[in-house]
Simulated scan of single mutants.
Amino acid sequence: MRKIIKFLFFSLLVMLFLSGCNSNDTNINNNIFKFKDSFVGDNSAVGNIANQLPGAEHLNGFELKTNEEPYGIILNYDWIESEEEFKETVVYNATFLFTLVQNVDWITFNSDIREYTITKEILQEWYGKELSEVQNEDELRELVQECETLQIQELSAHES
């Protein structure tokens, strides 16, 4: 009987170890694309997306502007670090939000450093691509990396 219990205990330990090694976590987002085609009025989806993006530790809250078109999102950050880093976060996060939330037209990023408002139309012009056509996170990350420097320069030109 003891041999059976030892064998079962050992087997359980091996299974736990192997399942831990086989973690399918995509690190940043626990598959953020499950929120693709969300709507700006879906508080839960927008909140989940925003909380999985860079800078989430500085996110103090958000507002959804859905009373009249064009629909928008206001993200409030307690960002006091580098303005350059904030610009990169704005471009990256706006790209993800515009890709995943189908009816958002503009996003305002408020911080202690600066406020940026960016529109879906401007961002799509920068990329030369309709963001709703992006189908997965890898494709979106590749797109962001290709155009990152140009976008940050353009964002500086469109500062609000």
Rank of each mutant, 00 (worst) to 15 (best):
E81M: 02
L155S: 11
L64Q: 04
D105C: 06
S111R: 07
E83G: 07
F10W: 07
R114Q: 14
N60E: 15
F98C: 10
N24H: 14
F109A: 05
E83V: 09
L18R: 08
H58K: 14
F35E: 03
A94H: 04
F109R: 14
W106P: 04
S38E: 01
G20H: 05
L59K: 08
G61V: 04
D112T: 11
P70T: 05
I107W: 09
N60A: 10
A56N: 15
E121S: 15
M15T: 14
Y71K: 12
T89F: 02
D138R: 12
E68W: 01
S111W: 04
F96T: 01
S111H: 07
S156P: 11
L97Y: 07
E83D: 15
H158V: 13
T119A: 07
D37M: 03
K6N: 13
R114A: 15
F9M: 13
E139Q: 12
G47R: 03
R141M: 11
I118T: 09
F35Q: 10
F86L: 13
K65N: 14
G41N: 10
L53Q: 08
N76E: 14
A94V: 03
M15H: 07
E69D: 12
L150F: 15
E84R: 10
M1E: 05
V14H: 05
W79V: 11
F33L: 01
R2N: 13
E63Y: 10
G41D: 05
G72T: 04
T95K: 05
D138N: 11
F7N: 03
Y127K: 05
D25E: 10
L59D: 04
W79G: 06
I118L: 15
R2Q: 08
Y116T: 05
L53P: 00
F39G: 13
D112C: 02
I107T: 02
N29A: 04
N30E: 13
P54W: 00
G20I: 01
K87I: 13
A94K: 12
V101R: 02
C147S: 08
S111C: 03
E142K: 09
V14I: 15
E137M: 06
A50I: 06
H158N: 15
H58E: 11
N22F: 13
Q135C: 09
L8R: 09
N136K: 07
D78V: 03
F96S: 08
E84C: 00
E81S: 11
E133Q: 12
K6R: 11
F98T: 02
T117E: 15
G128F: 03
I5E: 15
H158L: 15
I4G: 07
K34W: 00
